[in-house]
């Protein structure tokens, strides 16, 4: 079976006049499967944002190729297909929102795609329901909280009915409540609607929800694996400016202290359950 997204020997430089053109991406090979949730981790300046901008043809490879559903992103005639298949959500919701009423904002994308008015209405309602913002459809966008704005930005992408959503640090400007709302929305889009998710984040707790984590360093993918495996390699993560979630650190240090715990926890509830079970076994 063909992969949904194929990145083949991708090299990229921002080619600024005269500057010795440094490769920001340095030979990336990556396949993204339909319906998967992929998280991308890496130090500041490692090339994460540059990489995902290649997935919806916002940037084109200097060398190598990127294929979406078999279409080469360099194929100018297919830009529409690519952009309607793969949508991008950025960090700061304030820079993305253009309309003053919520439902107009969500309708903006499909209108630009030339979707018929009647089906725009349906798509907007459906998208707002998916991100749990339907009751706010008549509200003004500026009166929303950060988390709500970000969910509206996601709804705007969903209304274009993409197969994949790219999110570049969608929660880093939000408070804990807003972060949870947005993460829950992302997880639900993936689990319940099969939308492929590519999430860039600096929060290890968020990456723990992914099917796979890719780690980028200086424009190369140095590792790609399941969270449970990646987070068990503390020294490796350290080398690439990363860390482990608090719950993983706790279990890890307890094991080093001689407690015979076998499992690795990825979230708070798992962690508490593992410890309770162990303590009860001591009776």
């Amino acid at each position: 079976m063909k992969n949904f997204i194929d990145i083949v020997d991708l090299k990229f430089s921002y080619n600024n006049e005269g500057n010795n053109a440094k490769n920001i991406l340095n030979g990336i090979n990556l396949n993204i499967k339909k319906g998967e949730f992929l998280a991308i981790l890496g130090a500041n300046g490692s090339g994460k944002s540059t990489l995902i901008k290649h997935l919806n043809a916002m940037l084109l490879p200097t060398k190598g190729n990127v294929f979406v559903n078999g279409i080469n992103t360099k194929d100018e005639g297919k830009l529409y297909d690519i952009r309607s298949t793969v949508g991008l959500v950025l960090q700061n919701p304030d820079n993305q929102i253009v309309a003053s009423i919520v439902e107009d904002e969500v309708a903006f994308g499909p209108e630009n795609l030339g979707v018929a008015p009647k089906s725009i209405r349906e798509r907007v309602d459906m998208a707002l329901k998916l991100v749990d913002m339907y009751e706010y459809r008549k509200s003004t966008t500026y009166s929303l909280s950060g988390g709500q704005k970000q969910r509206i930005a996601i709804a705007g992408i969903i209304a274009m009915q993409p197969e994949c959503i790219l999110l570049d640090e969608p929660t880093s400007m939000l408070d804990p409540e807003g972060r949870k709302e947005v993460l829950d929305t992302i997880k639900s889009l993936n689990k319940n609607y099969g939308i492929t998710i590519v999430l860039i984040t600096h929060y290890m707790e968020e990456a723990a929800n992914a099917d796979r984590i890719a780690i980028i360093n200086e424009g190369k993918i140095v590792r790609i694996d399941a969270p449970r495996i990646i987070f068990s390699e503390v020294a490796f993560l350290d080398k690439y400016q990363l860390s482990i979630p608090t719950v993983v650190e706790l279990i890890h240090k307890l094991k080093l202290n001689g407690l015979p715990l076998n499992n690795m926890a990825l979230d708070e509830r798992e962690c508490v359950n593992i410890l309770k079970k162990y303590f009860n076994s001591l009776e």
Partner: peptide, 10 residues
Amino acid sequence: TAGFDPKSKE
């Protein structure tokens, strides 16, 4: 530290 990688944040 919003937007910092974990080591830069620390």
